[in-house]
Structures are given as C-alpha cells and as structure tokens.
Amino acid sequence: MPTVRVQEADFDTGRELDALTRGRRDVGALASFVGLVRDANDGAAVSAMTLEHYPGMTEKALEEICAQAHSRWDLIDTLVIHRVGALKPGDRIVLVGVSSAHRGEAFAACEFIMDYLKTRAPFWKREDTTHGSRWVEARASDDTAAAKWKS
C-alpha cells in the first residue's frame, strides 16, 4: 500500500526506509531516492527556497503516481514524502522508497515515481538568489524523462 506524506518537517531517511521493510521477509530489494536543495541554479547562487503546493490535489496526485507504479511493476510497497514551506541549501526535499522482491522492479519504479512527480504533482519552487527572488522554471528535460515511460 502506498504511503504519501506532504509535510513541512524534515524526515529521517534511514528510519523511514527501515519502516518500509520492518517485519517483512519477502522484500529482496529496497530502492530509494532523496532530492536535496542545491546552492546554485541557472547561474545564480541560491540562499533559500520556498515550496508551494496545492493541498488536497498534491496528495491525490502522489497516490495516483504510486498506484500507477504498483500496476506497472510487481512491487511490495511504495513511499513518497515531500516537504513544503521554507527550505535551505542542503535540506532534504523529497524521499521516494520502493520495495520489491527483486532490484529491477524497485529501481525502475523509483525512477518512474520521480519522473512523474516532477511533471504531475502540483508543487512549485520559489528560490532566493543573488539575482533576487524568482519562481523556478520547469525544465523540458523533465517532460522528456516522464515521456519515456509512455508505452
């Protein structure tokens, strides 16, 4: 069953991933991705970031993405934690965890979830830079990454 959380608070990566497999003996693979705030973007130093989202839709979109992953691959469990609010360079933004019997499914589903999250989950980043405060522009490469899963 997918677990989705949208929260301001930081998360403990190790504890969250441990919880995903605790008490289970059928998990042979646990793949994970952690996204962090970088200190530079598009040629400017980034001193802070604010993440806005669409409460209600965000959770639904993430649950839908996890459900799609479960229907595409033979997975045991999926987890997505995404932070919102004020963040600084080095802070964790997002954690995706996928457990399955074998690594192939776990790796693929983890990448799929991130590619779809990047293009379908309603989050927007605003960054404070040396050139002022600005909304982060969506990247065409993210659309390309998501499109490769269309079959």
């Binding site: 996204g35 995404h82 999250l117 990047k118 293009t119 927007w124």
Partner: peptide
C-alpha cells in the same frame, strides 16, 4: 478548477 504554472517539485 485550478490554474497554475508547469510544476517544479521534487
């Protein structure tokens, strides 16, 4: 009905 720019999470 919600309108917004292309999303930039993750």
């Amino acid at each position: 009905i919600a309108f917004f720019p292309p999303v930039t999470g993750g």
